[in-house]
Each structure stands twice: as C-alpha cells, then as structure tokens.
Simulated scan of single mutants.
Amino acid sequence: MPKLNQIVAVEKGIKSRTAAAVTKIYHDLQKPALFAGLSRKYSPVDDEGEQFPPESTLVQNSVDNSLTGIADHLTKLFDVVATKERANTEASADVVVDGVTIVGDAPVPLLLFLEKQLVDLRTVVAKAPTLDPSEAWLPDENSRGWRTDPVQTTRTRKVPKTLVRYPATDKHPAQTEVYMVDEIVGHWATTKFSGALSPARREQLISRIDALADAVKRAREEANSHEAEQIRIGADVFSFLLAP
C-alpha cells in the first residue's frame, strides 16, 4: 500500500491535470458546431438539370463522450482524494518536545492547523515591544509589568532681576538693566512603567514556539508515513450519475 505522503505528493499534479482536461471539455461543450452533422444530396427535376456533388459534415463529438471523458478524469481524482482523506482520519502522531508529549495522537489535519497557527504566533511575538534597554527596569507587582526607580528633576520659572550698571549720582539717575534668571520652584519625581516584554523573555517565547513548531513538523512527517488503504469511489459515483 502507498504511504500517505506519497498520496499527498501526487494529489496536486492530478488536481492540476484534471482541472485542465475538464476545463477543455467544458469549453468544447460551448461549441455547438462540434456536435452537429449534415448530409445532403442534390437531385435535379429532370435529367438535363445541373448536377451538384453531395455535401456532408461529420459530427466531431457527442455530449455523452464529453461526459465520459470528464468522468474518466474525475474518477482518478476522486479516488486519490478519498484515499488521502481516509488516511488522514487514521494517521496520527504525538507532538513531543524534550521528551514531553504536548499533544497526543494528533491527526494530520490538526498538525497542519497547528503549523499555520504557530507561524502566525511567532510573527506576533517577534513584533511585540520590548523594554527600553537604556532604563533599569524592576518588576512591578501592582501592574504585573515593569517600573523604574523614581528619578527627580527640578521645575523652574523665570524671575526678573535688576542689574545696576551705574549707581545714581546727584547729576545722573542710576542706569539699570532687567534680566531673567531660572529659579527652582519645585521637583518632579518620575517613575516610568511598561507592559512590554524583556528582550530575554521575548527570545524565550520565540525559542519555545520554534521548538514546538519543529515538533509538530516531525509529528506530521511521522503521521504522513502511515500506509494508506486505496479507496475507490469514482467508478460508483459516475456509474450512478451517467447511468442510462
């Protein structure tokens, strides 16, 4: 008996060839001239009349032949697909990572589903934000995230000051200039919070996803080595459909 992976390998080619053949037959069915014939003979009313050679057009195809052709192609495809799907329901394998069974007795369709989901999940995790490495982050129990230690900064305001360039005399008034200075009026204590992943945690998650994805692929290969019992349904389907 063939193995499931052998059936899967030939299925795509059979599907492609069948689609091309059935499409051609379908297009031919849209050409009425292929299914029409003609035969005519000319007889003058008397022996002296003009003679013409007989004319004929042969029927090039028949709908029955076309449908039989479609049936021949689809029968092979139906049998391959039926064999594959039956084997898919019987073939299974365990998904094992480091000796631990994560998913037991997983059938092939489930393994294919898991492969796709893990690819998508890896993309999500790989794009997840990570903590700013320029900051020193501490676990924050309240938010289950991260925080920094408070950093104190000052708040200032502009205050005018007067500079006396020349003091007043009995002959001249004082010459002064107003200028602005920054005066500390308070302090900010800033604590930063974050819900991002640490770079190490993100790498850990990606590593686990990759390990599980590899295990799923190994399980799929093992399941696909299952021997597939040949199932033949095409002949019965078209014996019913094309019965006289």
Rank of each mutant, 00 (worst) to 15 (best):
A168S: 12
E177V: 04
V178N: 06
G186M: 04
L205F: 13
P173M: 05
R208N: 10
A211G: 02
D170L: 04
Y179S: 01
E183M: 11
R202G: 13
P199W: 00
R208H: 14
H172T: 03
A189P: 02
K171H: 11
H172Q: 02
S207G: 07
S194V: 15
R201Y: 12
E183D: 08
A168T: 03
D214G: 03
V181M: 10
H187Y: 10
Q204C: 02
R208M: 08
A211P: 03
H172C: 01
W188A: 03
E203M: 05
A215T: 01
D210Y: 09
D214R: 10
H172Y: 07
K171Y: 08
E203V: 03
Q204N: 05
T176A: 01
T169C: 11
G195V: 15
T191A: 07
P167E: 10
A211N: 00
D210I: 11
V181T: 13
K171V: 09
R202K: 14
H172L: 01
T169S: 14
F193I: 12
F193G: 11
Q175D: 11
Y179M: 01
I206D: 07
R208G: 13
A200K: 11
R208Q: 08
K192E: 06
W188N: 04
R208W: 13
H187T: 14
A196P: 12
G195C: 15
V185W: 06
P199L: 00
